[in-house]
Design a protein around this nucleic acid. Structure first.
Length: 844
RNA sequence: GGGUCGGUGGCGGAAUGGCAGACGCAGCGGACUUAAAAUCCGCCGGGGUGACACCCGUGUGGGUUCGAAUCCCACCCGACCUACCA
């Protein structure tokens, strides 16, 4: 017996050896095809949890497979190191967030090393390092110059627990709660910095076609961007003030019987008549207050008030009342709508409630449920569907619809001809609010001067550093506000007294460009920057970029994954990159659940600590188990007993490779045994290669287990009379290839066995070996089973050579005793023969 | 309300038009052991049989096909996302 598999010894041994050899250091090599594999960077929370293992170790296995397949693979790692938890810890424990963060980084680096992943540690980047965030600030200045960063006084979402504003994407759910702490947000009017992501709305939408991303992410981004095609139409009040509206149904303009303004709309004040003033003021106040209360699903009653003012419908000159209601949102479109109660559900509900006129302009077809409706009074609900335009002047008789020759197009053409409006596209996407009223983030490099206004910090003065001596008090206010040295500065333009911007950037800013930072982290460290610098070495950048394969969770679909696409387009327009999309392929893994099938959480007490299992079984087993659970994109529950199966597999591999055989064979193995093993080997290579290439680790591992079981079964046949192995190469080749195929998932045990197997004991690492190639000839079966069916039910099986002629199969099937028995003298109506598969005899 | 994905043994799953349940977990029986653990061998969807044969079976109901877990239609259930978007 050889010694047993001792994972703790070999794993730490090889991790140290690989590091010493620089096995995973990165070098650009134009002679080889590159592959940039990236897994979403971890936040410096303090501990790597099972979710990190589930996301990262399969990413590593895929990257290792690419590397063995001949690619020069870049698989970097770093830390998302700014954010609120560090600051909260600072307040609670009176430590600087930097200290808290770097303690966590150190612990997590150790945990990441235990994974045995091929991280390119030589390119590590940490986003709170001043040499990192000086480039975040450099980007900010560039975006500001391009008009893509701007400051605006506007109502914004504020989390009262985090004491900061949030971006639209970071407010979740119907109760509009904070993405981080679940607290319902409130509205505040504040001066805030934003990025003009909406400039790229159309491109962000259209370019989804260019990238190989999962359909659900594309759908979510598409919905989030929310393109609507319609028309912009100008109404006028009786006093001649214009009211712009956007509508997707300009064909129903003739059915507009009233207008509704959002409570925040600037015209509300102007058009409200004295009699209505108090009611309108109450409604506006109510709407403002409602924003501060968590809205529930039931709270959908359409409330609104008449302003007393009237507008003229530009298409037919009708005088229609103007209302104020909170179902019209200031943040979408123009904050004003024309209401067509006959054909819009919300308008219908509102009109019914307030006794407003309902007009029918689309006659529902006669065969529809609403087809008998001849007048609007009969309507039980709005009719948003098809039909023919009526009561609509120039477009009467046109079929309702958006296609060529139908009502929407016709209406837009008429509007444009008559100067009443234009075809228009509207997007739901809003600009990205990046200001955070917190200290532990990238300072926004701007200075407010009473004389010069808002002035950018000079490039050469970057980075704007966070102070080391900030005081953390539980006031809810950013320490930057009361740090005099940080706050009070001289104006870069007039040299007069000025105040530094104390907002910091959303941490999604750091992660919007981290894939570029990895290429050449902390570029120009310690050197002053200039406007025409490049943030990384251009040779390295053009070699590695863009990312070939990105892996991560779908929860970032409308945040990080949208922001980084925007950022890349902006970088392209500042001539920093030459491509349109940052990540060419994306794979979303599922979520690893607790043993109870629920999401892991401390409150449920179902959290699985990966370190515990690594101690007990080793990193290789934990890696393999996570990949064996099921399809990676599905996720699934952690089963503490099922991990035993993977552990046993590794012990069996150990034994099949190293142990003496149980009995000695007769000499050299029989030809059939040799061919059988060779066939199984090449079938396994084909299967495993295909599965690794498409992230199907569960079936790849199953194939490896099956192959190992085969090796165990036949081992004694390949044993020479003296107890040692025969000279025959197939056994040796099989074992070597088993280790090569295991290397991506089980890097340590594969390396250990590879080295022990090597003659002379000083072989190059298993991870530097070439991926084995399956030979289809050798993988071919000599004999296959063809199923014989009678009326679709299996009644017999034939053992034949592959490619046996169809006529021959048919003859054999008809001659079968079993078949004869089932045919029972009945007529053969038809015989279906599928070569190498089956014969189906249809009788009756 | 809208969208997306899914429903297969006791459990995780495999099979995406051709032998349902690969691989693994749990369970049962056996070997080894003073005993247990570990390990090894065998069984393992349900009914039926001494054993076969045979019958039933992939959420439910229909359909297409020589043949359906797989394709189509309707419905039921679950997960996730989204939601007054004009």
């Amino acid at each position: 017996m050889s010694d047993r598999y001792k994972h703790s010894e070999i794993e730490s041994k090889w991790q140290a050896a690989w590091e010493e050899q620089g096995l995973y250091d990165t070098a650009e090599d134009p002679s080889r095809p590159k592959w940039y594999a990236l897994t979403m960077l971890p936040y410096t929370s303090g501990d790597l949890h099972t979710g990190h293992w589930y996301a990262m170790t399969p990413s590593d296995a895929a990257a290792r497979y690419r590397r063995m397949s001949g690619y020069n693979v870049f698989f970097p790692i770093g830390f998302d190191a700014f954010g609120l938890p560090a600051e909260n810890a600072a307040i609670q424990n009176n430590v600087h967030p930097q200290e808290w963060t770097y303690n966590n980084v150190e612990r997590m680096q150790g945990q990441l090393r235990r994974m045995g992943a091929m991280w390119a540690w030589d390119r590590e980047a940490i986003s709170c390092d001043p040499e990192y965030y000086k480039w975040s600030q450099w980007f900010f200045l560039k975006l500001h110059e391009m008009g893509l960063a701007y400051r605006e006084y506007a109502p914004v979402d504020w989390c009262p627990k985090c004491n900061t504003t949030l971006a639209h994407e970071q407010v979740w759910g119907e109760d509009r709660h904070c993405e981080r702490c679940d607290t319902p947000v409130i509205k505040k009017d504040l001066n805030q910095w934003k990025f003009r992501i909406t400039k790229y709305s159309e491109e962000l939408l259209a370019d989804l076609e260019k990238i190989d991303w999962p359909e659900p992410v594309k759908v979510m981004q598409t919905n989030w961007i929310g393109r609507s095609d319609g028309a912009q139409v100008t109404f006028f009040t009786e006093d001649g003030d214009p009211i712009e509206i956007f509508t997707t149904r300009p064909d129903t303009l003739w059915g507009a019987t009233f207008m509704v303004l959002a409570p925040e709309h600037p015209l509300v004040d102007i058009i409200t008549t004295p009699e209505q003033r108090s009611a309108v003021a109450e409604c506006v106040e109510e709407a403002g207050r409602l924003d501060e209360i968590a809205r529930t699903a039931e709270d959908k009653e359409k409330t609104g008030v008449f302003t007393g003012g009237y507008a003229i419908n530009p298409v037919n000159g009708e005088r229609i009342p103007i209302w104020v209601a909170d179902y019209v949102l200031m943040g979408y479109g123009t904050g004003a709508i024309m209401a067509v109660p006959g054909h819009d559900e919300r308008d219908f509900e509102f009109a019914k409630k307030h006794g407003l006129q309902i007009l029918l302009v689309v006659q529902p077809p006669a065969d529809s449920e609403a087809g008998h409706v001849r007048s609007a009074d009969d309507l039980e609900a709005a009719w948003p569907g098809e039909g023919v335009m009526i009561n609509s002047g120039p477009i009467d008789g046109t079929p309702a619809g958006k296609e060529e020759g139908e009502s929407v197009k016709a209406a837009i053409a008429w509007l444009e001809e008559n100067g009443k409006g234009t075809g228009a596209v509207n997007y739901r996407l809003r600009d990205w609010l990046i200001s955070r009223q917190r200290m532990w983030g990238t300072p926004i490099p701007m200075i407010h001067c009473a004389r010069c206004g808002t002035v950018p910090v000079k490039y050469a003065d970057l980075p704007v550093r966070l102070p080391d001596d900030a005081q953390f008090k539980p006031t809810g206010e950013s320490p930057l506000n009361y740090h005099e040295g940080f706050r009070y500065v001289t104006c870069p333009q007039c040299k007069g007294p000025a105040e530094r911007e104390t907002d910091t950037m959303d941490t999604f800013m750091c992660s919007s460009w981290y894939q570029y930072a990895y290429v050449d982290p902390y570029h120009k460290a310690g050197e002053p920057l200039a406007a025409d610098d490049l943030p990384w070495d251009s040779g390295r950048g053009s070699y590695w970029l863009p990312v070939d394969q990105y892996t991560g969770g779908i929860e970032h679909a409308t945040m990080h994954l949208l922001y980084t696409r925007f950022f890349t387009k902006a970088l392209r327009d500042m001539n920093v990159v030459a491509f349109d999309e940052p990540m060419l392929r994306l794979f979303n893994q599922g979520i690893i659940l607790g043993p109870d099938g629920e999401r892991m959480s401390k409150s449920r007490g179902n959290v699985v600590n990966p370190d515990e299992y690594v101690d007990k079984y080793g990193a290789d087993t934990v890696r393999g188990y996570l990949m064996f659970i099921g399809p990676w994109e599905h996720g699934g529950p952690w089963d503490p007993s099922a991990i035993e199966g993977v552990s046993r597999f590794l012990y069996r591999v150990w034994s099949v490779v190293l142990d003496e055989p149980h009995s000695n064979g007769a000499g050299s193995p029989a030809d059939a045994d040799v061919r059988g093993l060779e066939r199984k080997l090449h079938q396994t290579i084909a299967k495993v290669s295909e599965d690794y290439g498409s992230f199907r680790f569960n079936t790849a591992i199953a194939a490896l287990m099956e192959f190992n079981n085969y090796l165990i079964r036949v081992k004694d046949s390949f044993t020479g009379p003296d107890g040692g192995e025969t000279e025959d190469g197939v056994w040796r080749e099989s074992v070597r290839n088993l280790l090569l195929m295991m290397a991506p998932v089980f890097p340590h045990v594969s390396e250990e066995l590879w080295q022990r197997l090597a003659e002379g004991g000083d072989a190059a690492s298993v991870h530097l070996q070439a991926w084995p190639q399956a030979d289809p000839e050798k993988a071919k079966e000599e004999e296959i089973t063809v199923v014989v069916q009678v009326n679709g039910r299996v009644r017999d099986k034939l053992s034949v050579a592959p490619n046996t002629a169809e006529e021959e199969l048919e003859a054999m099937a008809l001659a079968s005793n079993n078949v004869q028995r089932w045919m029972d003298g009945k007529q053969v109506r038809k015989v279906v023969v599928v070569a190498d598969k089956l014969v189906n005899i249809v009788i009756g």
